[in-house]
Write a protein that binds this DNA or RNA. Structure first.
Length: 304
DNA sequence: AATGCTCGCAACCGCTGCTAA
DNA sequence: TTTAGCAGCGGTTGCGAGCAT
């Protein structure tokens, strides 16, 4: 072999392409329990027909609990532009300034949005050289959700700090949830991820408040076909349909329940790892070894 | 309704850098 | 110092979704 390294894995028998929810579950569940000290060995240990590299990528770019998903704010975009001016295409270095953002995400947003926008800006400046408008003005005009102009004159650091502050203040539900989790000592990573994964769907999916005292703070993704809280209140058993089925992307395309099932995954992982529930091979989960039978119990359980 | 086009993003590939032996 | 093996990085691609015709 010439330059470069040998392939990270034997490609024969290794699955490629989009991840199924069953695979996601296996990966999350394994990492929650054992961490990821050795990506190369992980797939075999976790029972995944993937190469370690693919597992790592999936985890880092999509499943990692501390990921902050959703659209970039104007300030984030502005900060990316400024950082790119100094760092170039060092996406991981740029990403290190944005907690919860991945290098892949930033790379994508640069390639799909910011690069074009800067090009347009340069063209506009050529056509109107007397204009002293800054990049942020162009960005502001292009981004209808921009509320905060004050931060745009600062240094990179200032912008980034303000970006984080702005992000926190502008997305009340899920950041409040993080705050709450800090207070309740609940495992924030899992719930944060549940919440972030769902914040884009919040507008289209009905949400459910958990506790009366937290009604204005917390929104939990609620599934039309499955009520987790009924599970906790009810007969202590629920069928997570398709949990153990290897649902391909093509299958998902024609399966309207996939989204709902997907959201339940996070609860499934949470219930399994945090509350000591058993995940049964037939795709069902039973409440065992815990006194959790209600929303309040769930919170008090985690606070204790 | 059908078709074609564009866009966005998840995932892959090839490579580099680091580290331990 | 060399070598091998690993994680991580950056460029690129494939595909699904949305939009226009």
């Amino acid at each position: 072999m010439g330059k470069g390294r040998k392939p990270c894995c034997d490609k024969a028998g290794v699955k490629r392409g989009p991840w199924s929810q069953a695979e996601d579950f296996k990966l999350i569940s394994f990492i929650q329990k054992h961490g990821h000290n050795n990506w190369r060995a992980l797939p075999k240990l976790a029972g995944l027909a993937r190469c370690g590299k693919s597992c790592r990528l999936r985890w880092v770019n999509y499943l990692r609990p501390d990921l902050k998903r959703g659209n970039f704010t104007l300030q984030e975009e502005e900060a990316i532009i400024k950082l790119h001016q100094t760092l170039g295409n060092k996406w991981s270095k740029i990403a290190s300034h944005f907690p919860g953002r991945t290098d892949n995400e930033i790379k994508n947003v640069w390639n799909t949005h910011l690069k074009k926008r800067l090009k347009v800006k340069k063209t506009n400046e050529k056509n109107a050289p007397s204009s002293s408008s800054s990049t942020c003005n162009d960005l502001a005009s292009a981004n209808t959700t921009s509320p905060n102009d004050a931060v745009l004159d600062g240094t990179n650091e200032t912008i980034i700090n303000d970006t984080i502050e702005y992000s926190s203040s502008s997305s009340s539900s899920y950041n409040s949830l993080s705050d709450h989790l800090m207070m309740t000592n609940m495992n924030p990573s899992i719930i944060e991820n549940i919440d972030d994964r769902n914040k884009d769907e919040m507008s289209t999916y009905p949400t459910k408040n958990i506790e009366n005292s937290l009604d204005e703070l917390i929104e939990i993704p609620f599934e039309p076909n499955l009520d987790l809280w009924d599970l906790l209140h009810g007969d202590n058993e629920v069928q997570f349909q398709n949990v153990d089925t290897q649902m391909s992307n093509n299958d998902k395309k024609d399966d309207n329940t996939s989204k709902e099932v997907g959201e339940s995954w996070w609860w499934l992982v949470y219930l399994e790892n945090e509350l000591g529930l058993d995940h049964l091979s037939d795709g069902s989960t039973q409440l065992q070894s815990t006194n959790v039978t209600s929303k309040n119990d769930l919170f008090s359980y985690n606070s204790s």
